[in-house]
Amino acid sequence: MNNTLAIARKELRSYFASPMGFVITGLFALLFGWFFYAYLSYFVRSSEQMMMGGGTPNVNQHMIAGLLQNAAVIILFVMPMITMRTYSEEKRSGTIELLLTSPVSDVEIILGKFFGAMGLYAAMLGVTLLYVAILFFLGNPEWKPVAAGYLGLLLMGGCFISVGLLVSSLTKNQIVAGISTFAVFLFLWVINWIGESAGPTGRQIVSYISITEHFDDFARGVIDTKHLVYYLSFITFGLFLTAKSVDSERWRG
């Protein structure tokens, strides 16, 4: 546990020791802010129409849900940049030799790296809470659906990170790791588009695999155990494969 913590600390520190952590957090905040603005102005316009028609606009339903779904897409683009260096860089510079000859188990190293990346990701999400705070300041949205949405974002990001770690453990070239991770993410995102043309059973299977499909309920403020189980088992499986990859690397030399 201490080892995991030490490695997570080291990872987190290294993100912010270079400009990288700041650049990623900043860009993410910028993109999120742009979507926030777009959704807000759209919401203002449509709520005027809705009020004229006698309906009641709901910030949670008509704005935050959509905003978070878009945030999920930004994360898909940003996450490869966070995870691509985790293993590749250690392998390239030879520091992996330090980790693997220290009295630390592979699982502790992998969990350390996972929580390090999660730390940065949580900080990125933390910044976006400022935008949401504006909504609370000016309006009165419900906080529970927002919390559920952020929980969903965290879990979905965890899945991306576990895949990113796996891909990064396969190569010592950061760029290769980054591009491959991005391709895998994109595939997991668009896989349900194929599903639409498949038969009913095919569609069900494909939409179950899609990472983003499971996020929709979270964005609407619903915490369903089905999705929790999916995300947690996805993360576990990704980390398990990473452990296998690190171990097999060792045998191959």
Partner: peptide, 28 residues
């Protein structure tokens, strides 16, 4: 075991003290 590989396994963005402290942590 204490091991010095052929290329010293340093983390470029850590200071010497941070680095040695980190190694002390993972070496228990």
């Amino acid at each position: 075991i204490g091991y010095l590989p052929e290329a010293p396994p340093l983390y470029p963005d850590m200071t010497v003290r941070e680095y040695v402290d980190f190694v002390a942590r993972i070496k228990g």
